[in-house]
């Protein structure tokens, strides 16, 4: 019962939203067109009409963007993490993907150069692309 009512309510709100958008779009288009023709005729109210038209159009874009932002679906993006291995004997270092059970100062496989055991000195995530994501959360991708 509740679900039916809420479904009906959401359908009504979507319809109201679409109708309002269409009405606003018609008004905005009319004022822009009217402003343009008035401008060609050299009438003084051209700028006033243009202003109304552009303001209405901007409101439509803003509301539409807001509406779109609501319907974004989130999913989890895996963050790549690396382990840096170093040999104290020869100074050789290598980086590999993080493996479960790794921790800093853990002694792992032997060095391919000097055959001494290597130690994990750093476990760090891949550098995030600053341009791509300004969010501190790197795993969420819309």
């Amino acid at each position: 019962m509740m679900t039916e009512r809420s479904n009906r309510a959401s359908l009504t709100s979507v319809l109201v939203f679409i109708i309002s958008m269409i009405v606003m779009f018609v008004i905005a288009s009319y004022f822009i067109y009217s402003g343009y023709t008035s401008f060609l005729e050299g009438r003084s109210d051209a700028y006033y009409q243009m202003l109304i038209g552009i303001a209405s159009m901007a409101s439509i874009v803003y509301v539409a963007v807001q509406y779109r932002a609501r319907s974004i679906k989130y999913k989890m993006k895996e963050l790549k993490v690396f382990s840096k291995l170093e040999s104290e004997e020869c100074g050789y270092s290598t980086v590999r993907d993080f493996l479960k059970g790794d921790y800093v100062f853990k002694t792992v496989e032997n060095c391919p150069k000097c055959d001494a055991p290597m130690t994990i000195t750093r476990i760090y995530p891949e550098k995030k692309d600053e341009k791509k994501s300004s969010s501190p959360l790197q795993w969420l991708a819309p």
Partner: peptide, 14 residues
Amino acid sequence: MAPAGESDPIGMIM
């Protein structure tokens, strides 16, 4: 379409 003005009915409505 005529520009919005006193004589234009659509303009009046708008």
